[in-house]
C-alpha cells in the first residue's frame, strides 16, 4: 500500500506523496489512503460531517471522559486521547453504530430490491437485534445534529440519494412505531456517504479519528484544574448491592 524510502520519497497507493499528493488537504489524503479515491468534494463532505457530528468537547461523554480523567491524574495528552479513541469503538455511540447503520442501510436496500417491504425488514431487524444502529440516542431523545447535517449536505449538493431517502424512510416508520426511535446523526451520515459509494468498512476507517477534535479540549480543560478535581466521588457514591455478610478469609 505504501512505504517510505528514506531520503528519497514516500509512496501511497502508487502516488508519490511529496510530489503528486502534496497539495491535498489532510482529509483528502486520509480519504485517499482508505479508499484510493481522489475526491475533494467527498473529502469536504466528510470533513463538514465530522465537525457537526462527532467532535463535541463535553467531558461527560464517555470517550471524552477518558481524556478528562487522564488529565486530572496528570497522564499524558496522547495517552488520554488514545484511550478515548479506543473507547470510541462503543455500542451505544461511536464506531459500532457508525459502521452498523451503514451496514443496515446496504442490507435493507438489498432486501427491498429483492422484493421485501421496508416495514418487514425493519421489524425483523428490531426483533433480532432489539434495536437498529443509527436510530435512537442515549441521554437525549432528539438529535440536534440532524438538521444542521442535512443543511450542510444540501449545500454540498448531497442529500437527495436513495440511501439518504431510505435512512429517513426508516426514521418515519420507527418514529411512528411504538419504539419512537428517531434517526440520529450516524444514520444520516451513513445514508449520505452510502450515496457517495462509501462502504461500511470504509466509513469505519474514515470515522476512526473523528472524535479527537472534541477529546483534546476535554484533556486541556481538566489539566487547567487542580489534580484529582474532575468529578471527585465520595464513598457514598458507591451503591453496593453485593452480599451483606462480613466474611473472614479461610473460615
Amino acid at each position: 500500500m505504501g512505504a517510505i524510502f528514506p531520503g528519497e520519497k514516500v509512496v501511497l497507493r502508487g502516488k508519490d506523496v511529496l510530489k503528486e499528493l502534496k497539495d491535498y488537504r489532510w482529509i483528502e489524503y486520509l480519504l485517499f489512503g482508505i479508499t484510493g479515491r481522489d475526491s475533494p468534494h467527498l473529502a469536504r463532505l466528510i470533513e463538514g460531517m465530522w465537525l457537526i457530528c462527532t467532535s463535541f468537547p463535553d467531558p461527560r461523554l464517555w470517550n471524552n471522559r477518558i481524556a478528562a480523567l487522564s488529565a486530572t491524574t496528570r497522564s499524558t495528552g496522547v495517552l488520554g486521547s488514545a484511550g478515548a479513541l479506543a473507547v470510541s469503538e462503543a455500542t451505544i455511540y461511536g464506531l459500532k453504530p457508525i459502521q452498523g447503520v451503514s451496514d443496515f442501510l446496504y442490507r435493507t436496500s438489498e432486501k427491498i430490491a429483492g422484493g421485501q417491504c421496508l416495514e418487514d425488514v425493519v421489524k425483523s431487524e428490531v426483533k433480532k437485534y432489539r434495536g437498529i444502529y443509527g436510530y435512537g440516542r442515549p441521554v437525549a431523545d432528539k438529535d440536534e445534529r440532524v438538521g444542521p447535517l442535512m443543511e450542510f449536505a444540501q449545500s454540498m449538493g448531497a442529500g437527495e440519494g436513495p440511501y439518504t431517502k431510505l435512512a429517513f424512510d426508516v426514521d418515519n416508520y420507527l418514529g411512528s412505531s411504538r419504539l419512537k426511535y428517531r434517526i440520529n446523526a450516524s444514520g444520516v451520515v451513513a445514508g449520505l456517504l452510502a450515496d457517495e459509494g462509501v462502504t461500511p468498512k470504509e466509513l469505519y476507517h474514515i470515522a476512526t479519528l473523528t472524535f479527537t477534535a472534541g477529546v483534546i479540549p476535554c484533556y486541556i480543560d481538566a489539566l487547567e484544574k487542580p489534580e484529582g478535581a474532575f468529578f471527585p466521588l465520595r464513598t457514598s457514591r458507591v451503591n453496593y448491592e453485593g452480599t451483606t455478610a462480613f466474611r473472614v478469609w479461610g473460615q
Binding site: 464517555w62 470517550n63 471522559r65 477518558i66 480523567l69 487522564s70 486530572t72 491524574t73 496528570r74 497522564s75 499524558t76 495517552l79 488520554g80 488514545a82 484511550g83 478515548a84 479506543a86 473507547v87 470510541s88 469503538e89 462503543a90 455500542t91 451505544i92 455511540y93 461511536g94 459500532k96 489534580e227 484529582g228
Partner: peptide
C-alpha cells in the same frame, strides 16, 4: 476509565487501555 468503556459497550481491550491511560499519570 475502564467503567466508562464498559457502560458504553466498548471493546474489552479498550477498557484496559483506558485504565492504563488514566492510571499512568502523576496522581
Amino acid at each position: 476509565g475502564a467503567m466508562n468503556a464498559g457502560v458504553g459497550g466498548s471493546t474489552h481491550a479498550s477498557a484496559l487501555m483506558a485504565a492504563l491511560a488514566v492510571g499512568a499519570g502523576n496522581l
